[in-house]
Each structure stands twice: as structure tokens, then as C-alpha cells.
Design a protein around this nucleic acid. Structure first.
Length: 505
RNA sequence: GCCCCAUUCGUCUAGCGGCCCAGGACGCGGCCCUCUCAAGGCCGAAACAGGGGUUCGAGUCCCCUAUGGGGCACCA
């Protein structure tokens, strides 16, 4: 095999990093990258480092760092070193490391590995236009590379601003070893002299990530596939510095549900053939998904637990996780499957925990339900929810202000097997029964109502009657199981609603 | 235009030369259970992009084509 493993590094502790740019909320694709890094670190008892790549001042958004950290915490992806917790390799925010980048770019200049470029952005875009028109390969042609020391001095004296570009070796081949893809080779002539230090004095990604990864002693880089074409540049930078490059693992991209284009082009939720497609982790959170379910879901895209198991905890996944097993092909997120996974996690929740999880969503929908009442219906809700807000249409009957939304007639309360007179009799008997039964609990209510239903319907089955009871008591076609619903409603309100239905006849 | 990567059911995937006339899951359809809706159980339809090699034998290795994706910024 020509794929590298971490064999050579076995005695070193694994150090991996997640390095988001603070340009907004955490993207679901980035969350997956973070998850894989985190899993790898935890599996190897290594260190998971959070680094903020904020060298693009124009795109940095105030508050984004906190927002991203908050989301990462919610997902349970804890980091060992980072802007808030510190560490021995700080600072962990790139703008605070500006001196370092200046120092090393000067070093490259002094060692003839880089040069100053005075091209203006206008000049550059003009060049690009010409290349496009001539159908020539796109990219910087290296025109400033050949400037003499005198010319450079003169232009600097004239006050021209400059960037620092890498002196990419002009010939030969650069081979990158990727754990997921094997070896990939590039002809050096097709790799341009990239800008390392921008005219504002801050580094580009290329310089910053190489310096930081080296100084922070990062052993493995797991990043999105869109970076793969810049890997040879990075390798050559490591060589220029005389440093050892880390192990690379380029993760496949997450695509749009349509399969057209990468999902990361989208910055927020959108509709796709009637389905709501979330893209920020916060959107998943607000939609009522559990972080455990999200991790389970994400880890199974591009990687597989094996043993034909779909539901598993991260703790169970860790021993099985490996970079070599990651699928190199891009994939779409199976959103429908996430709903199912989340439903599975909800089924396994304790009723108390479910109640707590649901409360904020009920409150947002304007439904005020007491804890006691909520708890009564929770066991029945466990198997009925994919997402927490699904509880709203099930539970709104509990709020008097929300009932009566369904216009009911006497006819609605009848059934083929339950003509009007029988329906009325059943409701009246149920009313009498509910107003006196002691104790007012699930067992007694279910027994009494079953008996009434069987007696009153033409086929001797309680079904038709119970259906009408549901309508009378909850004013809904669909509700939690009837008996639970009645208990939750309480004697008085249940009887009052029956009275109102009886009055329709 | 140039370079790089990828290609198994609709989707997420298992498969690392014989165990595969391809397994699991979601979704979909049917049946059962059932006070509605769910959950659960059972059954079913559904895929190796195409063509050449290599080999006794290819979903698995190689090449070509096609298709999809990514990159070619003083963005990351």
C-alpha cells in the first residue's frame, strides 16, 4: 500500500485541529469535519485543538467565534486547547499571531524562498481576463518573481504596497500522500506562486495554516476535499521551511440534496422539493434535533459503523473509527434518515427528559401546560415524535384556549357502527362515568370507557365509540391515546367538553 | 480552458479477487397489531455508469470514455 498510516507517529500523541473562520454560524459540513477530527483525537487519546482562522478581516463577523464555540459545545465536541481554554501552543486566534507570520515570511524572503509582488488587484484581474479570453490556464504568471533587487527597492521607495509570494519550485513533481485517497501527484509547473502575506500584513490561509500546524505540532490534518489542490503548495512550504508535513486526510464534500454542487455554498436553510433543508447546526438545533442524534447521523455519512448498525453512540463508534475507512466519494446528507434517527433517540428518552426538551417549543407556540399534566402524556409521546416541535399538534388540545378550533357537529360524532342515538347514549354514559369514577386514573378510565364503547356500538367493539370520544374530548382527529388524554385533561375539563358535545344533539 | 478527485438500490452505505445471481438502513408499497396518529413485527420492489484489458475467476486491480464534483483570489 502506498497510503501512509500513522505508523511513524505512533509514539507521538495525536494532535488534530478544527480551524473555522468566524464568518458566521457553524455549517453542518464543518460540523462533520469537526466531528471526524474530534473522533480521531478521542480515539487515540490525543488532543483536539480549536483554532480560529480570522485572517480575512473583511469577512470576519463579530460574535461568530462565540457562536461557533457555543454550537460545538452543544454538539459535545469538547476541545483541549483553544481561544477560551488556552494551551501551551497559543494564541489560538490567528490575528493574535500576526508577528509570527511576518517573521516567517521575512525568513522566506531572506532565504530566497519568496518574493515581493507589487501587482495591484486591477492588474491581476486584467491578467485573468486575458487568460480567460485566450483559454490559457488561469493563475498568477509570476511576473514579479524576476524583479531585480534594485527594482524592488525603487518600487518600495515609491511607496507601492506589496504582497509576499511563494517561490514555487518551477519543475518537478509534488506527491501528496492522503490517507483517504492514496498518493496524488501534481506537476509543479501548474502550481502558481501563491500570495503568502497580504498587503495588510496578515497571512493568507496557506501561510497561516502551515506555520500554525507546525508550531502547534499538529500530527494529522483532516479537512474538506476542496483543499486538496492546495496541498502540494503546502507541502512545498513545509519543505521550504525545512519542516515535516503532517498526515493528510481530505474528507469528501457534503453535497446539496439535489446532488448539484456543494452544500457549503448555502449559508442557511432553504426549501428543496417541499423539504426544509437545514445547513447551519443552529437550524437543526432549533428544529428540535438532539445533538447525539446529529453526531450519529453525521458520523455515518462518509464513514460507516459496520455490523449493519445505524444507531450508535460516539463512545461505541470510537474504537471502530479510522481514517482509512472513510469513503472518498462526495455524498448528500440523507435528511429523511436524520428524522428517523432522531425519532429513535427520542424513543429512548426518559419521560421527564422529553418533557424538559419539549417545553421550550411548547412555550414558543404559546402553549402553557403544567409539568404534571405534561408528564402524564409523555410516555405516550415517546414513539410519536421525530422532532420536538412535532409535539405541538398533539398537545394543543390540553390548552382550553386552543381547543374548539375544530367545528364539530352532532353528525361528526356518529359512525356507521354508531348511529346518533347510540353515540349520544355513549357520550352521556361516559359523562356520568367520568364525573364519578374514583380514582380518576388510567386503569379505571380505560376499563370503564371500553365497557361503555362495547355496549353502545353495533359491532360490540369499542373502536368506533372511542374515536368519537376522542373528537368530543380533544376536538381533534389525531391525539395522544384517548385515556391518557382524558387523564391529562382532568375530570372537570373532560366532563365540560363532553357536555358541550352532548349539547350538539 | 487547465489540473485534481470521485462513480454499488431514489438516498446513506457494506463489500478491500472466489463467502455477492451483491448485504444493511432510511424512504417507498403491502400485510399484521391497533381507540386515532405513531411505534413495533413480517413481506416486497429497488444498485455494481459504459467499454476494453489483467486473471482460472472482477463490484473488487489497470486503461479509456461518460457523468458528477472540487480547484485555478491580497477567501478560507
Amino acid at each position: 500500500m502506498d497510503k501512509p498510516t500513522q505508523e511513524g507517529n505512533e509514539l507521538m500523541t495525536v494532535r488534530v485541529r478544527f480551524a473555522p473562520s468566524p464568518t458566521g454560524y457553524l455549517h453542518i459540513g464543518s460540523a462533520r469535519t469537526a466531528l471526524f477530527n474530534w473522533m480521531y483525537a478521542r480515539k487515540h487519546n490525543g488532543r483536539f485543538i480549536l483554532r480560529i482562522e480570522d485572517t480575512d478581516q473583511k469577512r470576519s463577523v463579530p460574535g461568530a467565534i462565540e457562536a461557533i464555540m457555543d454550537t460545538l459545545r452543544w454538539l459535545g465536541l469538547d476541545w483541549d486547547e483553544g481561544p477560551d481554554v488556552g494551551g501551551d501552543f497559543g494564541p489560538y486566534i490567528q490575528t493574535e499571531r500576526a508577528d509570527l507570520y511576518r517573521h516567517w515570511s521575512q525568513w522566506l524572503l531572506d532565504n530566497d524562498k519568496a518574493y515581493k509582488c507589487f501587482c495591484t488587484s486591477e492588474e491581476l484581474s486584467e491578467m485573468r481576463k486575458e487568460q480567460l479570453a485566450a483559454k490559457k490556464p488561469l493563475g498568477y504568471d509570476g511576473r514579479c518573481r524576476w524583479l531585480t533587487a534594485e527594482q524592488v527597492a525603487a518600487r518600495e521607495a515609491a511607496g507601492e504596497s506589496a504582497t509576499i509570494r511563494f517561490k514555487m519550485p518551477r519543475d518537478g513533481v509534488t506527491i501528496i500522500q492522503d490517507v483517504i485517497r492514496g498518493s496524488i501527484s501534481y506537476n509543479n509547473e501548474q502550481i502558481i506562486d501563491s500570495v503568502l502575506l497580504k498587503s495588510d500584513g496578515l497571512p493568507t490561509y496557506h501561510l497561516a495554516n502551515v506555520i500554525d500546524d507546525h508550531l502547534m505540532e499538529i500530527t494529522h490534518i483532516m479537512r474538506a476535499d476542496e483543499w486538496i489542490n492546495t496541498a502540494p503548495l503546502h507541502i512545498n512550504l513545509y519543505r521550504a521551511f525545512g519542516w515535516e508535513p503532517p498526515v493528510y486526510a481530505h474528507l469528501s464534500l457534503v453535497m446539496n440534496p439535489s446532488g448539484k454542487g456543494k452544500l457549503s455554498k448555502r449559508t442557511q436553510a432553504f426549501q428543496e422539493s417541499g423539504e426544509e433543508i437545514f445547513v447551519q447546526v443552529e437550524e437543526f438545533r432549533k428544529a428540535g434535533f438532539l445533538p447525539e442524534a446529529l453526531n450519529n447521523f453525521l458520523s455515518n455519512v462518509g464513514w460507516s459503523f459496520g455490523d449493519d448498525r445505524e444507531i450508535f453512540s460516539m463512545e461505541e463508534a470510537l474504537p471502530r473509527f479510522s481514517l482509512e475507512a472513510i469513503n472518498p466519494a462526495p455524498s448528500r446528507l440523507p435528511y429523511a434518515k436524520l428524522d428517523w434517527i432522531n425519532g429513535q433517540y427520542i424513543q429512548n428518552m426518559a419521560p421527564e427528559a422529553l418533557a424538559e426538551a419539549i417545553k421550550p417549543f411548547l412555550a414558543e407556540a404559546g402553549l402553557v401546560v403544567s409539568d404534571d399534566v405534561l408528564l402524564l402524556v409523555m410516555p405516550a409521546m415517546l414513539t410519536r415524535l421525530k422532532r420536538f416541535p412535532d409535539a405541538i399538534p398533539f398537545l394543543d388540545f390540553l390548552v382550553d384556549a386552543k381547543d374548539g378550533t375544530l367545528e364539530i357537529t352532532a353528525e361528526d360524532l356518529t359512525h356507521k357502527k354508531l348511529p346518533a342515538d347510540a353515540a349520544l347514549r355513549g357520550l352521556q354514559e361516559a359523562r356520568a362515568f367520568l364525573s364519578s369514577v374514583e380514582p380518576f386514573d388510567l386503569d379505571h378510565i380505560s376499563q370503564g370507557l371500553m365497557k361503555i364503547g362495547e355496549a353502545v356500538s353495533e359491532n360490540g367493539k369499542a373502536g368506533p365509540f372511542l374515536g368519537k370520544m376522542r373528537l368530543a374530548v380533544t376536538q381533534k382527529q389525531v391525539s395522544p391515546p384517548l385515556f391518557e388524554s382524558i387523564v391529562a385533561l382532568g375530570r372537570e375539563r373532560a366532563v365540560a367538553r363532553l357536555d358541550r358535545s352532548i349539547a350538539l344533539f
